[in-house]
């Protein structure tokens, strides 16, 4: 596991030196400027909108990092041939894949962590400066800890997207991976529609195929509880736990698949 750790730290170092964390500045500017503008335009609804926008931004920024770094994670090593010297060192190819994966997840965790702190800081400031009448109209406290549940599920979702990007990166070009990964993410958000397709079409064959796809494709919509927490609706911890377990199991299988494909590759 030491090898995995060293590879992961190196991936993180690459992200920092390639200025990936600059996205945090964009995030902070976006959040603060939007909060200010909405505060000028709306009364009472601004807190919900800002909460929603903040969570969506954390998700989108994380998604961009997961996809655009993830798809080049292995491909770049192979294409630039830096992998030759590395794989001749005492490690298995599985450790290489796991290290790369953990490195990107570490980058994402630090990113999301910093964005979350910035998010709560802006919300706390808005809550502190709001007048009491406006405050009573809010369905939940500005710094409602329930939002952490939504952020936890965003993290699991991003970990799964990273695993999928890494999987494609082990055998296809970044261009193809850049089509397939967001494509799969998009389909995964409409997964519930696949389950209901049978009832709509009336064709047993189509219903079976749709149902099969429903079970095979990742159900990304399950990770999205942003609307509930923004509106102050309770999300049971058991739901968060089970959904996380589903995500972690799925991503473990995807990383295993990536390692299996990678183990058989020839580096010409």
């Amino acid at each position: 596991m030491k090898v995995v750790r060293h590879i992961a730290v190196n991936v993180f170092k690459e992200s920092v030196r390639d200025k990936v964390l600059y996205n945090l500045v964009v995030f902070a500017v976006l959040l603060i400027s939007t909060s200010y503008l909405l505060g000028q335009l709306t009364a009472g609804q601004d807190m919900k909108i800002i909460k929603d926008l903040g969570l969506a931004s954390i998700s989108i920024f994380g998604l961009l990092i997961a996809v655009f770094i993830g798809i080049g994670l292995v491909w770049k090593e192979v294409e630039k041939r830096s992998i030759y010297a590395l794989l001749s060192k005492p490690m298995g190819r599985g450790e290489f894949i796991l290290g790369k994966y953990c490195g990107l997840v570490l980058t994402l965790l630090i990113n999301v962590g910093i964005m979350t702190i910035a998010y709560y800081a802006v919300l706390a400031y808005l809550g502190w400066t709001a007048d009491p009448a406006t405050r009573t109209s809010w369905p939940a406290s500005p710094t409602d800890p329930a939002m952490l549940e939504a952020i936890a599920l965003i993290i699991v979702e991003l970990m799964l997207v990273t695993a999928i990007a890494l999987f494609f990166s082990t055998f296809s070009s970044p261009f193809l991976s850049a089509m397939l990964t967001p494509g799969l993410w998009d389909i995964g958000h409409f997964n519930d529609d696949l389950r209901n397709l049978g009832a709509v079409t009336g064709s047993p064959a189509a219903a079976s195929v749709a149902r099969g796809l429903y079970y095979v494709l990742p159900n990304f919509s399950a990770f999205d509880v942003k609307a509930q927490v923004v509106h102050g609706q309770a999300v049971p911890l058991s739901y968060v736990g089970l959904t996380s377990l589903y995500g972690l199991t799925y991503l473990a299988l995807v990383v295993l698949g990536a390692a299996t494909i990678f183990a058989r590759r020839d580096f010409k």
Binding site: S82, A85, K89, P90
Partner: peptide
């Protein structure tokens, strides 16, 4: 892996992490 611990390798036209 035990053998890899005891060997060294210089690839042709090596490229390393430029960062």
């Amino acid at each position: 892996v035990g053998v890899k611990q005891r060997i060294g390798y210089l690839p042709e036209q090596p490229y390393f992490y430029d960062y």
